[in-house]
Each structure stands twice: as C-alpha cells, then as structure tokens.
Design a binder for these strands. Structure first.
Lengths: 191, 191
DNA sequence: ACCTGAACACCGTTCAAGT
DNA sequence: ACCTGAACACCGTTCAAGT
C-alpha cells in the first residue's frame, strides 16, 4: 500500500472557511489554503477539481451550519411568530460571526461557486415550516421567502455599511421582523 | 504642449461596466479594460489609483444610474404606495439588465470598492421621500429601509437562483411590495 | 498513490525610458 | 506629459518526475 493523504477535504474546507473570513474571497488562494493544511498547492487538486469547487464547498458548509443554527433557534413547537423572530436574529448573528460566508451564500458570484439546491433546500426547511405555520399551507412558501428576503437584504445592507444615518439599527431590525410576522400571520387569518 | 490623454475616465468606467456585465468581476481586468479603450494596462494608472478604485467608480456610476431610474419610475407627486411599487419594480428591472452591477452595489466586497456615502445617499433620496410620505416623517427612514431591504433581498435571492421551487416569482414580488406598502402605510395611520 | 518542483498563462502594479 | 515594454511578485493549474 502507498502514501495516505496528508490532508483531507474537511480539513481543506475548514482552512478555506477560516481564510475566507480573515482575508476575504481574495485571501482565499489555493496557496494559502495549502500552506494552512501543510501541503503544496498542487496537492489540493487531489481533493478538489478547482478553486471554484472549493469556494462552493465552503459556501455549502456555511449554509449547513446556518441551517443547524436556525433549527436550534426555532425548535419544533415554538410559537411561529416568535420562531420567525428567533430565526431572523440567528441569521443576523451568523452574518456577524461569518460575514464573508454570509455574502457567499446570499450573494454568490460565478455559477460554479453556488451551493447546490439540495443543500440550500435543507438549510431553509426550518424557515419554510415556520412560514407554513404562520401563514397557512397555501401561503407558507411565500411567507418564508418574504421574511428571508427582508432579513437577508437588511443584513446585507448592514454589512455594506448602508446604515450610516444612525437610527437604532437593532431596533429597526426588531421592528421589521415583528411587523412582518404580524402582517403574514394576518394574511392567514383572512383579514 | 504635450501628449493629450488618449482615453478618459468616463470612457474607462464605461468600458469597465460593460466588461463587468459580460465577464463578471473576474472578467474586469485592467488589461481587458485597457484593450477596450485602446491603451496598455499601465496607462490606466494615469486615471485611476488601482483596480479597487475603478471597481468603486463603476459601482458609483451604477448607483447614480439606479437613482435616476427610481426618480423616473416614481416622480414627485405620485401616490406613495403606487410610487413604492413602481420603485421596487424599477429596481428589479435594473437588476435584470445589470445583475453584476446590482451585486456590486448591494453586496460589495472589499471596503475600497464600496460606493461613497454621498453617492449612496443621493441614489436613495427618492425612496426616502416615498417612505416619509407613506409612513410619516417619524417612521419614513425605517419604512424606506424596510422596503429597500426586502426588495434587494428578494432580487438577490432571485439572481442567486434561490427560487427553484417554481411558484410564480413575478406574482410573489408584486404580492410582497403591495402588502409591505400597505403595512407601512397602516403604521402611519396609527393602527 | 500522493506529493512536489518546474513550468505556463495569466494577474496587478511599478518604473525607467521613449516620444 | 502621456505612453509603453520590461520587470516583479503574485495567481490558478498542469504534469512529469520523485518517493
């Protein structure tokens, strides 16, 4: 038998995710990743077809992480408006901890770097369920999308530094999610 | 007197914007821009400090374009809910015509490439005014931010291919903006 | 079988030398 | 006074040759 791999795909993805946060997408070079896992750049191509695939794997890993956080934040049985609130806040915490990963997931660049629909679907299951319980089976998908769009847009603006006119951003977020959840629940009540 | 410039900053920015849409941010290289305006790459540094500055100028130009479109879509005196609807649709049209520029503006990367607050402020003046007329002076800023967050988030998800479960995306957008405008107007009515 | 140095075709950027 | 070739320090990626 011959040389066992000196590194592994999970190790590579983890190192890549760390580099992504510390140096942005530009800092995520094959050479830097290789150095972080203790090999030379060409060896990475034993585990990954090219850099775009590595970026995609990092995005998918981040998305799975986010999905797990949403599950914890809004466990089964939580009152749905409260669950939506908790999920939105969990998304915002995720974005603060991993801003570059957030951007990768919600504003991906080249096609080849986008998370697979499968991974994306699993990550959104919690919010979809909340949407259905909040707005009814019929409008559940629309409700989940509306909240996701608003929250991710708000957070993207925040990360982009769009909220320079002070105003209390924390309060605005809380205000928005509450009002949105009420409006969507109101729709279900047939008002 | 000596050699006049063989190109100009506006020409460079325009060529850059074209390359951005045709080849993404990766296709926007100094060499490609130089070729497009008929000089060699080093000459660009007479007009621009570095690539990040060029990217920023392209983003600012796109933002000004967007601001002008919003003005046209929601002229002074339009009924505010209708104006908000028109502005949201104008943003979506902009994103479809210039997806890469949209991403640059709403999900910028490195600090140095972000539009200046000044340019951003001017571009949002129309929506801010609509927000104030919709939700009152007090809550106008919050209302404008809420609609902008929702619309930009929705469109970013759309561009990212997040709406694979069909559903009628056009209808969902129309539904969302109408409901949002109503909810924000309701807030002003003190309900 | 994995790992590597060397190589290739690119980048962004600088700068001395041309006109 | 703008323009350029040449150069430098980087990239991503391939591949023959090492172990």
């Amino acid at each position: 038998m011959a040389a066992p791999s000196r590194t592994s795909l999970p190790e590579i993805v983890a190192a890549g995710a760390r580099l992504l946060e510390s140096g942005g997408l530009d800092g995520l070079t094959m050479q830097a990743v290789a150095r972080a896992v203790g090999v030379r750049a060409p060896s990475l191509y034993k585990h990954v077809a090219d850099r775009d695939e590595l970026v995609r794997l990092i995005a998918e890993h981040a998305l799975a992480d986010l999905g797990a956080r949403l599950d914890v934040a809004a466990p089964d049985g939580v009152e749905p408006r409260e669950g939506m609130r908790a999920a939105a806040h969990a998304l915002r915490r995720f974005a603060r901890e991993r801003p570059a990963a957030f951007r990768l997931v919600f504003a991906p660049g080249a096609e080849a770097t986008r998370p697979s629909p499968d991974v994306a679907y699993r990550a959104t299951a919690t919010v979809l369920r909340l949407g259905e319980r909040l707005a009814g089976a019929e409008e559940g998908l629309a409700a989940a999308r509306t909240v996701t769009a608003w929250a991710s847009g708000f957070i993207a603006m925040e990360l982009a530094g769009a909220f320079r006119i002070p105003g209390d951003v924390d309060h605005a977020f809380e205000f928005g999610i509450t009002r949105l959840a009420d409006a969507l629940a109101g729709a279900a009540a047939g008002r």
